[in-house]
């Protein structure tokens, strides 16, 4: 099983390495714009629970970016599947479905972690000092695990690139804005807060922010993300099995 995971993972990393000089600016541009627009322009003088808006925003951006970058592995899988037909090479090889999903999920998580390093660097440049300890990195790993697993599952279900961009519009974009990234959800009506608490990103934002700001951690949220990640992982394995026509 390990051989298969390594093969799939290394392949994705080799491709990423070739694109890294283009990838780093693309990972930087959105957080830079958010930090500039929301913090300097909109959030000047705003304080949330005793923290500046910048201190509130950066953990939210980290949660959002780890989600979008982990989920972006779905596009890579689709390119390999529909455009380059490389998925057939994996299907024809004697690796297990778990190995395939494992390799792709690890690749998605690695992309997410790398993109976070860019945001951490930007935060540092903007003069914000946060606590990036073990609890922070565990929360990040769990969040990226959830969304990389979801990405692999959905990449097996879609029938074309167009379907993929539709999933981004319906799943990722709403979650990015409503998952406690830009504003505290406890300011919303109770019913809306209850609905948003069902989103994994809400829990990820909560624990990443708590870890960054040295606040009490919700152990429940950690375990919830782990459970959702495991569930999505096994759904992804099932979807890969079904991907035969």
């Amino acid at each position: 099983m390990i051989h298969g995971i390594i093969a799939i993972y290394v392949r994705e990393m080799l491709i990423l390495r070739r694109r890294l000089t283009r990838q780093i600016p693309s990972w930087s541009i959105s957080p830079f714009l958010y930090l500039t627009a929301f913090s300097y322009a909109v959030g000047q003088g705003v304080e949330i629970a005793g923290h500046t808006y910048m201190e509130f925003l950066i953990p939210g951006l980290i949660a959002m970016s780890s989600m979008t970058q982990a989920f972006a592995i779905a596009s890579e899988i689709n390119i390999a599947r529909f455009y380059w037909h490389i998925f057939e090479e994996f299907q024809a090889s004697p690796i297990s479905k778990v190995s395939y999903v494992g390799g792709e999920v690890l690749a998605g998580m690695t992309r997410a972690m790398l993109s976070i390093l860019v945001i951490m660097a930007l935060g540092f440049l903007f003069g914000v000092r946060l606590n990036y300890g073990l609890a922070f990195f565990i929360a990040l790993l769990l969040n990226s695990f959830v969304f990389a697993s979801l990405a692999v599952a959905l990449a097996m279900v879609v029938k074309s690139h167009a379907d993929q961009s539709m999933l981004n519009s319906f799943i990722i974009t709403p979650m990015a804005f409503l998952g406690g990234t830009f504003f505290p959800i406890d300011r919303l009506p109770a019913w809306a807060g209850a609905v948003l608490n069902l989103l994994p990103l809400t829990h990820a934002s909560k624990i990443i922010r708590a870890a960054c700001l040295n606040e009490p951690l919700s152990i429940f949220s950690y375990f919830l993300l782990l459970a959702i990640g495991i569930l999505f992982f096994f759904i992804a394995v099932r979807c890969v099995e079904k991907a035969k026509d």
């Binding site: 051989h3 290394v10 080799l14 491709i15 380059w84 057939e88 090479e89 994996f90 090889s93 004697p94």
Partner: peptide, 26 residues
């Protein structure tokens, strides 16, 4: 298997494509 459509990793080198295949076959 040599399928009808070219299914090589275009961004990787010749050697890298072969190494990945070798790992897939343990």
């Amino acid at each position: 298997l040599v399928p009808q459509a070219i299914n090589l990793d275009q961004e990787l080198t010749v050697q890298e494509n072969l190494i990945i295949h070798g790992w897939l076959y343990r």
